[in-house]
């Protein structure tokens, strides 16, 4: 195996054979080390939240990855390949140039298919909302659609004040039954205050820059088609075989879907709706 070991011969066959073997071993080991080193670096640079989202996004069903511009009908068919981060998308600005949805004035309650979705704020595809409170502070909460799917959570694990959040990273955790759900943070920033379900919001976040880029969040006229799409997805997830599970109560969607249909595999449904594999 090595020149100092008995039975080593400096013959072409021997040298070529061992040369190939050692090359293969070196390639295997160095590739493995590169992967280890990169993941170590990612951790050092606090990139693991981004990476986790990237990995999860990859594993989402195609139906969950539809581009927002397909939902609004601006384009016939498009699957997102930017992990729902329109800030890095080259196509998004071309759509904005044609039609840019805007926020409604504050205090306007809006009912979208029975859900209370105020249009004075931004929405994230993972069913959270963001509202600018002035002085660089944003309020973050769970939207009505998300609330009704879960009902009352068994436990809420909020990040400590001072925690840095990443857009599409873990915002906070909700526990219900056996499911531990990662609620995705809609924006990046530092947590300055935490609330409760009763407050109607969960986090107050100070943006890293004075004005946080919100281009990746849904707003205004996009909300209605999005909720319609989400209802379709929910229906498919709740009863994949098409068997009727009714989530509506006399035309109105129930307040606590989980209580209404306990036979459903809610764990799977929540995972699908809150965008986690």
């Amino acid at each position: 195996m090595f020149p100092f070991i008995y039975e080593f011969h400096w013959t072409p066959v021997h040298v070529v054979f061992l040369g190939i073997f050692f090359s293969v071993v070196i390639v295997i080991l160095s590739t493995l080390s590169i992967a280890l080193l990169r993941s170590y670096k990612a951790f050092r640079k606090q990139q693991h939240e981004t990476i986790q989202w990237e990995a999860e996004f990859e594993d989402l069903p195609v139906a969950a990855r539809t581009c927002r511009h397909q939902i609004t009908g601006e384009i016939a068919q498009r699957t997102c390949n930017h992990e729902f981060d329109c800030r890095s998308c080259a196509v998004h600005p071309t759509f904005l140039a044609q039609r840019a949805p805007v926020l409604a004035p504050a205090g306007k309650e809006e009912s979208v298919f029975g859900f209370t979705m105020p249009l004075d704020r931004y929405y994230h595809r993972g069913h959270t909302w963001v509202k600018y409170e002035g002085e660089g502070v944003y309020t973050v909460g769970l939207d009505d659609f998300g609330k009704r799917m879960i009902g009352t959570p068994d436990a809420v694990e909020l990040p400590a004040v001072g925690t840095t959040l990443t857009a599409n990273g873990t915002g906070w955790m909700l526990k219900k039954e056996r499911a531990a759900l990662r609620i995705l943070s809609p924006i990046e920033g530092v947590v300055v205050q935490t609330g409760t379900a009763q407050d109607g919001w969960f986090l107050k976040v100070r943006g890293r820059e004075p004005i946080v880029e919100t281009r990746h969040l849904l707003r205004g006229e996009e909300i209605k088609p999005w909720i319609m799409r989400e209802l379709e997805r929910l229906q498919a997830a709740v009863s994949p075989e098409g068997v009727g599970v009714s989530l509506a109560d006399g035309g109105e969607l129930v307040q606590d879907m989980w209580k209404q249909a306990p036979q459903v595999d809610w764990d799977g449904v929540w995972g699908e709706m809150f965008l986690q594999a």
């Binding site: 590739t31 992967a35 993941s39 990612a42 951790f43 693991h48 990476i51 990995a55």
Partner: peptide, 27 residues
Amino acid sequence: RQIPRFLVFEFELHKVMPVFAGIGTFL
């Protein structure tokens, strides 16, 4: 996968998978 370390390693490993596929084919 709930352990972030594992998921990140998995992600990085997945990126270098073509190298292993190539080596595997060669071997």
